[in-house]
Amino acid sequence: MSVDKNTVAKIAHLARIKVPDASLEPLVGELNNILDFVEQLNEVNTDNVAPMTSVVAATMVLRDDDITAGDCRDEVLANAPAAEHGFFAVPKVIE
């Protein structure tokens, strides 16, 4: 499998990264090199092999339902590029 300019533009949009048209072509080459490389995996027979879900051989521990966090608006907003009246502020969204 390999990607073309359109596919790269599509995934760049999915990833919300603006890629100028001029940069698409070089990216096609770079990404295809990587994809060619990883395609070696097709040589491996993985029939009846379970995908790894976690390297940790443990089950997930359930937390108690206690309120242990929150009530820290100043900390939450401390690094916000724009915050007003206790809200994060972003350019207007039209639904």
Binding site: I17, A80, P81, F88, V90, V93
Partner: peptide, 21 residues
């Protein structure tokens, strides 16, 4: 939105794409 660099654009999606670029 929450921290770090923000490059504003014409819309929210623009802001995302420009900031991340």
């Amino acid at each position: 939105v929450k921290y770090g660099l923000r490059v504003t654009g014409e819309s929210l999606d623009d802001m995302y794409a420009l900031t991340r670029a």
